[in-house]
Design a protein around this nucleic acid. Sequence first.
DNA 1: AAAAGTTGTGCAATCGTTATCTTGTATGTT
DNA 2: AACATACAAGATAACGATTGCACAACTTTT
Lengths: 323, 323
Amino acid sequence: MADLARLAGVSVPTVSRALRNLDSVLPETRKRIQQLADEHGFVANAAAQALRGKTARKIAIVIDFTSAGPGRASPDAFIFELLSDVAHALTIRDFEIALCAREPTLERYERQFADIGASGAIFLGQGGQHLLLQELAARFPIVIYGAALPDALYCTVGSDNFAGGEMVGHEIARRGRSHVLLVGDPETDQVRLRFEGVRAGLGTKAQVEEVPVRGFSYDEAHVAVRERLRGGASPDAIFGASDMLAMAAVRAAKESGLSVPDDIAVIGYNDIPQALAFDPPLTTVREDDHRAGSLLVEKLMQMRDGARVSSVRLGVLLMSRGT
Amino acid sequence: MADLARLAGVSVPTVSRALRNLDSVLPETRKRIQQLADEHGFVANAAAQALRGKTARKIAIVIDFTSAGPGRASPDAFIFELLSDVAHALTIRDFEIALCAREPTLERYERQFADIGASGAIFLGQGGQHLLLQELAARFPIVIYGAALPDALYCTVGSDNFAGGEMVGHEIARRGRSHVLLVGDPETDQVRLRFEGVRAGLGTKAQVEEVPVRGFSYDEAHVAVRERLRGGASPDAIFGASDMLAMAAVRAAKESGLSVPDDIAVIGYNDIPQALAFDPPLTTVREDDHRAGSLLVEKLMQMRDGARVSSVRLGVLLMSRGT
DNA sequence: AAAAGTTGTGCAATCGTTATCTTGTATGTT
DNA sequence: AACATACAAGATAACGATTGCACAACTTTT
């Protein structure tokens, strides 16, 4: 930048101001400097800018990769649908995207965001860090895709998990089924709400059993459901907290000689593209990920501008298909 | 870092040296400082390190989101598997990750990488930019997941697409089928190689038809294959250039009253998790995405260190399953 | 016992950019 | 003509870490 300043016959700060289009520089000088910068392919050093504390057009996206590693499961497929939508919404707004992993403490998050110079963060899933996020939200602009917890101080965007669960419960009841397996990680806030919804939708007569699975692991769900079916349980319906879990349940049911949906109904959640490709097409609860993605970004933008924003619960739709 | 120095009763430079494990610090002091840093969740400011040391620990990951938008298709599911692996490999090496969209020109890429201060880039797919990448590689450290093109000057990691295709060809021939539909985007380098492999594996007697589809769109493939089947073509095997395309083909075949695999065999590529969940389980070519992910990162690290690196073609495996 | 080597630590300068303060000049007011 | 006001641009001091060099405290050698 010093070279550029010499070339333009001005001081370094002036070049800095000119490149950032501040109106404290004579328009004609500004233009001259910008043109010079273009010619010489000059780009301001990002590290220095970050160090100096420039309010960057950069957003951190936090995904839980902790389960990742050799022989591990990737995050649930739906997260990637969402990532793709959020990334698109940020890109067209000319924001940089920093992909971050889940951190264990408040300090680590703060430090990391400061480090990379992000001016906001989008969490794709609470990852069971509700309390931590409560505190973080007070100090840094964040929006979270996930469950709308009643005491949340942070802004969430997500489907109405309880209502979605309720629809599933009604559907199962409507089909005259009454012995239900709930497959998923009960420690995940969204999943817990969905389960509660299903119970509420079913009413009190139904018999409900949970099949706990860590995270959204297809393999684990597959094994767990198979064991449960072999273990004498004879449910006539299964709810998978995500489509992948539901697919695992279908597989386990078929291996146990059950026919889907005649002997046993299976319903998933999210309506990922593969749900329709499944055979028979998976009955599932559709979430509008496109809308969720752009809303997450929109909310964060408002927050950056200092506005107070409220959480959004998006409507859901039961797609009754083949299972 | 100043706080830490005060806490440890040493100077700032000593803390810096201790955290980087330099042996110029008394091992016992070093340990004490590291422990203190851990307790307080201290992480050195990356921007400052980059500024002083000129070695930014930041890598750009380029994904083609251009097709993204309302009512659009996301990138192929396999790309996300890969992203997850690459992100994991970078995170454990303590690198920052910047997610970037595909750009149309060389200058735009250079500008963007300089802008965000990345010290290398990983492309998840060539995206048909072979020539552009040739030039870019000469000026900036990049590795590419994709096809190993014979004249490539850049470093690629990917499956042996031709060999994978050949296996598919052999399998189809082994099953006594001879009229094959090739579904996929022939302008994608990897897909082109797979198609060539299939033709080679089939031999000259077989009748082969291409069903061109832009990108990896499930819907487009579904419609295209259905139209083709209705249009009088009566193939007895279909190769989908990705698992999602194969699933679309299965759907189309069933809708046309064909039974899979008796009337028509369907084979995919990638072995995404959903392939096994599919019913019947999808016959497909397995790529080792975990290994590809860590190799991509490894190669880039070597390149950053100034080493010359060669491309890698990973072996593939035909998973003959239900289709 | 003095000189020479080792070793661990502190000091000060540095990376490139930007916020703040200051200076100088042109413009407008009385 | 004298003074206040606006405005553009320069000077300076951070931001948080790293690095060469100097220095002190010990060991070892002669």
